[in-house]
C-alpha cells in the first residue's frame, strides 16, 4: 500500500471512532450506540480486499482498541475474523444486492457490539439494545457505503 492509501484508510477509521463517540447517546432507558468504526473498516475490506489483509486488520484493530474503551486484543480478534470472512466471500458479495449487504454488515456490526457488552460490561447487556444496534447498523450501512464509495473514488485512487 502507498503512503497516501494508508493515510486515507487510517484517517477514515479515526474519523469513524470520533463519530462513534459523538453519536452515542442515552434516550430514555435505551443507550443508543453506533459502530461506524467496524462499518468503515468492513467497507475497506469489501471494496479493496487486496489492500486490507491480515497485518492491516491487526493494526486497525489495535488502533480501535487503543482509542476506544475496550481491552487490547478485542477488536484485533474480531476484525481479523470478519476480515477473513469478507475475504473468503469477496466475489460472492459482489453479487449481493444493497439490502443483502446491509443485512450482513449490519448483523456483523451488532455482533461486535454485543460481544463488547458481554465481555466488558455484562451488567449492561440488553437484548433490546442489541436489537436497536442491529437495526441502526443496517440502516447506517447505506450512508457509509455510498459515502465511502464517493470518498474512495475521489481520494483513494486520485
Amino acid at each position: 500500500m502507498s503512503v497516501r492509501e494508508i493515510i486515507v484508510i487510517y484517517s477514515s477509521i479515526t474519523f469513524a471512532i470520533i463519530l462513534d463517540s459523538l453519536f452515542s447517546i442515552k434516550l430514555g432507558s435505551v443507550f443508543f450506540d453506533t459502530n461506524f468504526s467496524y462499518l468503515i473498516f468492513s467497507y475497506w475490506v469489501f471494496a479493496a480486499p487486496e489492500k486490507i489483509r491480515v497485518s492491516q486488520s491487526i493494526l486497525i484493530g489495535f488502533l480501535v482498541d487503543f482509542l476506544s474503551n475496550s481491552a487490547i486484543g478485542f477488536h484485533i480478534t474480531l476484525y481479523c475474523l470478519f476480515s477473513l470472512i469478507i475475504h473468503a466471500y469477496a466475489y460472492t458479495f459482489r453479487l449481493f444486492s444493497y439490502l443483502q449487504l446491509a443485512i450482513f454488515f449490519g448483523t456483523s456490526a451488532s455482533f461486535i457490539s454485543a460481544m463488547f457488552y458481554l465481555f466488558h460490561h455484562p451488567l449492561h447487556y440488553s437484548y433490546l439494545d442489541i436489537f436497536i444496534y442491529w437495526i441502526t447498523s443496517m440502516i447506517l450501512w447505506f450512508p457509509v457505503y455510498f459515502g465511502m464509495r464517493r470518498f474512495r473514488q475521489n481520494f483513494f485512487y486520485a
Partner: peptide, 10 residues
C-alpha cells in the same frame, strides 16, 4: 492473528 488477538485480550 485471531489467536494472537485472543491472547492479548486474555
Amino acid at each position: 492473528a485471531c489467536l494472537f488477538g485472543l491472547t492479548l485480550f486474555f
